[in-house]
Amino acid sequence: MKTMLRHCLLAELLGTAVLMIFGTGAAVVNEQTQTLGHGGIAAAFGLVVLILIQSLGHVSGAHINPAVTLGFWAAGRFPGRRVLPYVAAQVVGAFIGSFLVQLIATPGSALGATLPAHGSAQAFGIELFLSFWLMLVILRVTSSFYEQGLLVGLTISATVALEALVGGPLSGASMNPARSLAPAVLSGQLTAIWVYLAAPCAGVLLAVVTDRLLELKPAPPA
C-alpha cells in the first residue's frame, strides 16, 4: 500500500531533524569537550544515517537530503509532484534540528556548519565527488537486483561515515544542502554556502548518468 504523503513528509522532517541533532550535535559536543574527535563525528553521522534508514526507510525512503530526492527523481524512481514537498520537509527538519543543537552550543559556535578549508573551488570539487559517489552507491544498492534489506542501510551509512572521515577536514563532507544551510543561517557562517547547495545537486545528477551507463543489458545474440 502506498504511504500517504503526510506520513512521508513527517518522516522526512523528523529524520532530517534527528540527523542534525546527532550529526552536527556531535560536532558541537566535540567543540566543547574534545572527546569525540573527527573520527567520532564521522561515526556519529554514519550511525544516525543507518538508524534512520532502518527506522524510517519503509515510510518515506529516508531520503533526509534534498539532493538525494533530486537524484531519485532524475533517475525516474520518484514522482515529480513529491519533490518540492519532500525538500520543504527536509529543510524545515534541518532548521528544527539545528535550532535544538543551538540550545546546547556555546556562544559563537558554528553549529557544525560546513566551511571550505582551502577555498571554494576545492570544496566544490570535493563535495561534487562525495555527493556523486554517495548517490551512485544509493542507486546501486537500492536497485531491485541488489537490494538486500539490512545490507542496504549498512552500505549507505558506511559510505557516509567514510566520506565524512576523509572529506570532512577539507570541505565538511556535507553532501546535503539542508544539512549545510540550517547551521549556516543560524550561526551566520554563510561563507561559500553556494558550494554546499550547488555541488551536491550537480553530483547526484552525475551519479544518475553514471548509474545508467552501468546498467546491465543482455548480450546480443551470437
Rank of each mutant, 00 (worst) to 15 (best):
R179M: 02
L190A: 11
R82T: 09
S55T: 15
M4E: 15
I104A: 13
L14H: 09
V91F: 01
G39P: 00
V137I: 10
L47V: 15
S55R: 10
L136F: 02
T142P: 07
L130P: 07
L190Y: 00
L216M: 12
I193E: 08
V141M: 07
G71D: 09
I138A: 10
S55C: 13
A88C: 12
D211R: 15
V160H: 01
A105C: 03
F145I: 11
Q34Y: 02
A199L: 02
N176K: 05
G188P: 06
A26L: 13
A11P: 01
A184K: 10
G46V: 14
V101W: 01
Q34D: 14
V18I: 13
G40D: 13
M1P: 09
L47N: 01
L162C: 10
T114F: 03
A123M: 09
Y146I: 08
A184Q: 06
G93Y: 00
M175W: 02
L103C: 10
V101Y: 01
T35R: 15
T191A: 14
L128N: 07
S174E: 08
V209G: 10
L197Q: 05
E127T: 13
G188N: 10
V152A: 12
V49M: 14
A182L: 00
G61F: 00
G39A: 08
G40A: 13
A17C: 05
L206V: 02
V137E: 15
L150W: 03
A11V: 08
G39F: 02
V101F: 00
P183R: 06
A161G: 04
F95C: 01
M1I: 03
F124C: 10
I193W: 03
P116V: 04
A113L: 03
L14Q: 15
F78S: 14
H38R: 11
M175C: 07
G167S: 13
L190G: 11
G71W: 06
G57M: 01
H118T: 03
A207D: 10
A75D: 14
L111K: 12
I21E: 07
V166G: 06
A161N: 09
R81S: 06
A43Q: 12
T159S: 15
T114W: 02
G188K: 05
M135G: 05
V208E: 13
V28K: 09
I138Y: 00
M1E: 12
F99Y: 12
F129I: 13
A74G: 09
A27K: 15
L134F: 01
W194Q: 11
H7E: 15
A110Y: 06
I64F: 06
A11C: 09
L190E: 07
G119D: 13
I156S: 12
G80N: 06
G15N: 12
V209C: 08
A173T: 08
A219F: 09
P177Y: 03
I156A: 14
M20S: 05
R179H: 01
S120W: 01
M135Q: 12
G97C: 04
L52T: 02
V18A: 14
